[in-house]
């Protein structure tokens, strides 16, 4: 495992998302959708305010989300949106070969080869899989 590197002065540097794999782009979109729900759902927002945490500038989140969706590309965006509409969250982590979205054990052949840029979906629930 290589040591991650970051810009030395990262305070203004934009993310270098161009070199992200298709799956990374999808995961980022999913992350932003989770954050959107967290910062727009009234009950969630009320809790954040009570904790003293600010979350008012959702326009910037919308812009980041739009950019992330565009970077995913039409092909995977359809599968992503379909799963998101259905489950609220389109991406599921996999632990010990179990899809954490539907808890079905995935076949050994489901895992993409290491380093492969393949995006896989759960054959049971259709969520996009993140093999952590």
């Amino acid at each position: 495992m290589g040591h991650p590197t970051y810009p030395r002065s990262a305070d203004e540097a934009p993310a270098s998302t161009e070199r992200w794999t298709p799956l990374s782009r999808i995961v980022h979109l999913n992350d932003l959708d989770l954050l959107t729900r967290e910062t727009t759902d009234p009950a969630s927002l009320a809790r954040l305010k009570k904790l003293g945490l600010a979350a008012e500038d959702t326009e910037r989140l919308k812009a980041a989300r739009a950019q992330a969706a565009q970077s995913v590309g039409a092909r995977w965006l359809v599968a992503y949106e379909r799963a998101r509409q259905r489950y609220g969250s389109a991406v599921a982590a996999v632990r010990d070969r179990v899809c954490l979205g539907c808890f079905v054990t995935l076949p050994t052949t489901a895992r993409p080869r290491s380093g492969a840029e393949t995006v896989t979906t759960c054959e049971s629930c259709g969520r996009i899989l993140f093999w952590g």
Binding site: A15, T17, V27, H28, N30, D31, L32, L34, L35, E38, T39, L51, G52, L53, A54, A55, E56, D57, T58, R60, L61, A64, V91, A92, A93, F130, G132
Partner: peptide, 27 residues
């Protein structure tokens, strides 16, 4: 990148020298 976007939505500083940046992700 998610943490950076979160900070742009609103500062996670609580005051009195404390910040609680947060992220929820399949990663």
């Amino acid at each position: 990148e998610l943490l950076r976007v979160r900070e742009r939505v609103g500062s996670t500083a609580l005051g009195k020298g404390v910040a609680i940046p947060s992220a929820r992700s399949v990663t």
